[in-house]
Amino acid sequence: MSVTAAMPTDVPRAPQSPGAVALRRLLRHGNFRIGGTILGLIILAAIVGPWLWPLDPASQDLGHRLAVPVWSAKGTWLHPFGTDQLGRDYLARLLQGARVSLTIGFLTVLLSGVIGTGLGVAAGYFGGRIDVAINFLITIRLTLPVVLVALVVVAVYGGSLPTLIVVIGLLLWDRFAVVTRSATQQLASRDFIISAQAIGSSIPRILFVELLPNLIGPLVVVATIELAHAVLLEAALSFLGLGVKPPLSSWGLMVAEAKNQLLFRPWMIAIPGTPLVALVLAINLVGDAIRDAVAADGRA
């Protein structure tokens, strides 16, 4: 629980939209500051990193295979994080991995968010048979094991980025659907929706103008959960060798390739593992903080 319950004294300065109140509450939230900072740093590294450290992550420097990182005794600034079995620069691969993780994460959440929200709103707003059918669809989706289905599809179509995004996106929409469905059910009986129906607003207008803005709070919370989920899933698929394929790099793939070095070169696992954990942790912290912020005014 956050200690951000607004005291009666600091509320009525100027009339503020609920969004602005939630945002202010969010910015004061300790977890949000920590998580936001880490997330910001990783995004920054993904964007400008390859430009600042322009070494080709795929080029093999066979003379410098398994080079040690700069902080160990024999390390050099030539390869600050060392190199892998094929002599590829670890830092360059790490930065490319950040791009891959974030790209897959954000695009899959976009895809699954659109699918899940569409289904959830339809089920919650129209009810009846549509609701039953969509509920059944959600049950079916939950019954299918995510990792296994993703592995099968990737095994057939190959681990290109677009394939991975589509596969993961098609698998992670269930929580969006469940949450928007129940939120829509609650909203549909509220006065402002009923009055919109009464004045004869078109259904798209009601859904997009009246309903959807009120779903943003819960949607953002679910989005953070699924973002973390997608990042973890990509890492797991790549770790199993059925995700991102070389020469492209991914943190999960780097861990998999370094698996056999666990005994003598544990840093080769720690270097891609640490940012992976940090990224997921940061996303979760931000998500928790957003949940606190939107839940406190009773809208979530």
Partner: peptide, 11 residues
Amino acid sequence: AVGGQAVPSFL
């Protein structure tokens, strides 16, 4: 709980 959720199972 928060920390545990962030560590991928293979790691």
